[in-house]
Amino acid sequence: MVSFRFCIYLLCAALLLIGNRAAAEVSPPEGVPDDAERVTVGSPYVNIYTGPGRGYPIFHVAEYGQEMWLLKRRTDWIKVYLHRNKTGWVRVADLDEIYGADGELVRVHLPDFRDVNAQNFHLGFTYGDFAGADSMGVNLGYRFTANLSAELRATQAVGNFSDSQTYQVAVLHQPFPRWKLSPYFMLGAGVNITSPNATIVATEDRQDTAMLTGLGVKAYLFRRFALRAEYANHYLLTSRDENQEIVEWKLGFDVYL
């Protein structure tokens, strides 16, 4: 026969288990989203700012063992909710010692170059050599997937004997988009308009279809900024006896929007 004392022991153990589980599943306070993560401060203190920036004042200090809910993120700042209806902003760098409901350390990564994968548009500027002429270019790109993007490209080249403008649409493939030094390959097509610098004999501008192949590499320096180096081969389909091949080298940078 099971003793009365053993039954009391089982009852106490069950109540303790239910209490611990309920404590781990505390529902967020009113006004806090259900998916907000509840964490406990593990460092001596965390400064709470009134806004997402060092220029905002500190209005509260969360001490060791205090609970707070992570609401949303803005770059390297996180909005938090604390008891007694306090909301404020914390630097991600200050959240290196916070613990979840299960007691495990919660890691909030700092923004880095991998965040460009979340940006769809980029704007770029380049300078280089277009068959011996100085060239300046601009491009506007859109990312469809982590590996595939498209660009609208415009280049102005100024030479001793002629100037040219090239307008193209290109598709870029990055096989390793999460590498900090990421190579890419491209294919494209467009038009090339050549204006000869003739002073004695009047000449007409030429407009040719321009096919594009090339390769390059992007070096991600910050969350929204990358340097790029590129080699491009332009194949001009002319109306003359021979088609023309132009090699272009360029350096530039992209800003992710």
Rank of each mutant, 00 (worst) to 15 (best):
V2E: 12
I8C: 10
L10Y: 08
A13D: 03
A14W: 09
A14K: 03
L17W: 12
N20Y: 04
E30W: 07
V32G: 08
P33R: 12
D35Y: 13
E37V: 14
V41S: 07
I48Y: 08
Y49A: 05
T50L: 14
G53F: 08
A62R: 06
Y64V: 03
M68Q: 09
W69K: 00
K72W: 08
T75K: 13
D76F: 11
W77Y: 15
N85M: 11
T87R: 10
G88S: 03
G88E: 03
V90D: 02
D94E: 14
I98C: 03
V106F: 08
R107N: 13
H109K: 09
H109W: 01
L110Y: 09
R114T: 15
V116L: 07
V116D: 06
V116H: 14
N117I: 05
Q119D: 11
N120V: 10
N120W: 07
D129M: 01
G137E: 10
N139Y: 03
L140G: 11
A146D: 15
N147W: 02
S149Y: 01
A150M: 13
S162Q: 12
S162I: 00
D163Q: 07
S164Q: 08
Q165I: 04
Q165F: 02
Q165T: 06
F176A: 10
P177M: 09
R178F: 12
R178A: 12
W179Y: 13
Y184D: 06
M186G: 00
G190Q: 04
T194D: 12
T194N: 13
S195Y: 12
I200L: 14
T209P: 01
M211E: 03
M211K: 05
T213G: 13
G214P: 02
L215Q: 05
G216P: 01
Y220V: 02
Y220D: 09
L221G: 12
F222H: 01
R223D: 09
L227W: 11
E230C: 01
A232G: 01
H234G: 01
T238K: 13
W249L: 12
W249E: 02
D254T: 06
